[in-house]
Amino acid sequence: MSDTGPLLEVRDLHVRFRTRDGVVSAVNGMSFTLDAGETIAILGESGSGKSVTAQAIMGILPSKTATIPQGSIRYRGTELVGLRERDYRQLRGAKIAMVFQDALSALNPVTSVGRQVSEMFRVRGDMSRRQAKAAAIEVMSHVGIPDPARRFNDYPHQFSGGMRQRVMIATMIALRPSVLIADEPTTALDVTVQAQIMDLLKELQRETGTGLILITHDLGVVASVADRIAVMYAGRVMEQGNVDEIYQRQANPYTVGLLESIPQIDERVGRLPAIPGLPPNLLAVPPGCPYHLRCAMPIDPCFEDPAPPFTQVAPGHHSMCWRAEEVYAGERVAR
């Protein structure tokens, strides 16, 4: 495998699904790069294409309905789109791993937790059962599961939500993958446990230099752990840039709307501002900017194709908006 370019590079990725009602364009030109040790947060509402992007990277899109008509995903220079299943299997788990949202459903209910963690070592076929067990116990203790040797034979339902997510993480980091995708890893957990799990992920990342792709709709989580953000809407990246920069100075009306809808602890507000309307139906995305129907400050070109260009407003800070410069300069429309 040639070691050229960034760790992971997604360029102009398109994902379509054939459904009974027509073709759904779930991802329409997603691009980002990820370097070792870096955390990129993919942020967006439900149905914005975050999870589909993750599945496309893992190569686990439903093969019967999904296609990637355009775009490329490169892992250390190796093209993953169209990669043979046999070769993909070598990458999954070992190089690119994914932490699922709901550990309870992502763990096999009738297999003991320890077996499932050691599975990762066994799948590679180079460890005996005993070696795999020892390795699994070590990883389990590493992710903070107390007394892992004793809990090895317990079943997923005997664990608390947070512990289950730790088991899931233990499985996924077992082989020290260089890319870890976390698909809403804390959504199913309560707040205090959320923080512990995020801390755990960050700590593991610091130790191993893993590139982390964090998929979430939780703006609070993003601010605390991500280096960069890609804000997705209707299968497109609306704005991408350094996390601090985007929190302070947005260049896209959608991001502005999203951040405005977070309640501030030091402000007295009546009704929380929300973005009116709903994301567009992906069966028929409107021409032009996908956000124009909900945008507070649309202008004529927004309603027509082509979609706005991805404008650079500052080094490493891009926004897909005709008025990106104006928004970045501080222009706002009160709703």
Binding site: M58, I60, Y88, R89, Q90, L91, R92, G93, A94, A97, M98, F100, D102, S105, A106, L107, N108, P109, E119, M120, V123, M168, T171, M172
Partner: peptide, 14 residues
């Protein structure tokens, strides 16, 4: 269709 099967695919299990 259960997620643990997808998870198993995602760890590269044959």
């Amino acid at each position: 269709e259960r997620e643990f099967v997808e998870a198993s695919v995602a760890i590269g299990a044959p």
